[in-house]
């Protein structure tokens, strides 16, 4: 992997000037990578980019505000970094961005589903990527899966495989697939009647454990310990195990991300019970794009649309009573 070697070299070059470099390393099992904090040159040995680099390392940047850090980013992660900079949540001069051309990342749930009949996910002993195929060794047998079938949904509609902004870039920028994001996932929901959609959310949210993994994995959720979901005054959501409060939390998350969400999909990926929470955020992103022709995290100069206004709004048709 030439790009991986180039990236390691860049990280080693950057390392003396920064507190740490955030990237990806080996995870708890062969199917999973994990966020990885490199502080010493020997740490860089186990760095890995590629299809297992699923997590969004931009998540950790606000914690390091005031210190200089390096971060290795995929295209989608770089949008989060850009959005954080444009909202002044991190400082441009405090972060060294290392980009690389991303070929898409693995959706672990899809692999587990595809191999469900062959054994438990815990029995996976090796995973290998070669030429558009994923070879998974499970309970002693090797199964071959097409990478396109098991890659994350967001990669199928990816328009930014390369970092939007970077100080160093490994390899040659990859052409975007040219696939336009047609909000296929939302279209499926829009086929349902309003009652069916309401029932859909009631059913989906009834599974919610309120673990708040969606919030904790969100690079734009920077309030951390001061989240309104945990506030008692005002008491936005109660401690009751009610679907209403669970749905309310998801709406809070979506509303707070309106015009800020870059669609990295971490909230949905980390959900332990597989609730499609990204749909709510995508609805609002779609609205923001249509109304204000704005996509979050594409450049640091443009102002988030909800933090500004125009006296005459060309796109807003107000109701004429």
């Amino acid at each position: 992997m030439a790009i991986q070697e180039q990236l390691k070299k860049m990280i080693l070059d950057v390392l003396p000037d920064v507190d740490c470099v955030i990237g990806w390393g080996p995870g708890p099992d062969p199917l999973r990578g994990s966020p990885f904090f490199m502080r010493k040159p020997e740490d860089v040995e186990s760095f890995m980019a590629g299809p297992m680099a699923v997590q969004n390392p931009a998540l950790f940047l606000p914690e390091y505000k005031g210190k200089k850090v390096g971060v290795v980013v995929k295209g989608c992660d770089s949008r989060s970094v850009v959005q954080l900079i444009s909202e002044d949540l991190i400082k441009r001069e405090e972060v060294v961005i290392i980009g690389f051309p991303c070929d898409g990342v693995l959706d672990v749930a899809k692999v587990e589903n595809a191999l469900a009949s062959h054994g438990e996910p815990g029995e996976i002993t090796a995973v290998e990527f070669s030429g558009g195929e994923v070879k998974v060794t499970l309970a002693g047998n090797t199964h071959s899966l097409k990478f396109d079938d098991v890659k994350a949904d967001k990669c199928g509609r990816c328009a930014v495989p390369n970092a939007v902004m970077s100080d160093f870039f490994a390899g040659i920028a990859r052409e975007a697939s040219g696939v336009k994001d047609d909000y296929e996932d939302l279209a499926a929901l829009e086929k349902m009647s309003l009652e069916e959609r309401f029932a859909f959310w009631e059913n989906e949210m009834s599974r919610c454990l309120r673990c708040y993994a969606c919030r904790n994995a969100c690079p734009m959720c920077v309030c951390r310990d001061h989240c309104v979901a945990s506030s008692r005054i005002p008491h936005w959501i109660s401690q009751a195990d009610s679907t209403r409060d669970k749905l309310m939390f998801q709406v809070i998350h979506a509303v707070h991300l309106a015009g800020r969400c870059t669609g990295c999909g971490e909230c949905q990926r980390v959900c332990p019970v597989g609730i499609p929470v990204l749909l709510l955020k995508r609805t609002l992103s779609k609205g923001v794009t249509e109304l204000f022709d704005y996509a979050a995290g594409m450049d640091t100069e443009s102002k988030p649309p909800l933090l500004t206004f125009q006296v005459e709004e060309a796109t807003i048709k107000e109701r004429n009573w």
Partner: peptide, 17 residues
């Protein structure tokens, strides 16, 4: 105006008229 206009788009997805 901007905030409410964007928010309004969320209601159909939630199944609220």
């Amino acid at each position: 105006r901007r905030r409410l206009e964007v928010f309004k788009r969320l209601l159909p997805t939630l199944g609220i008229d």
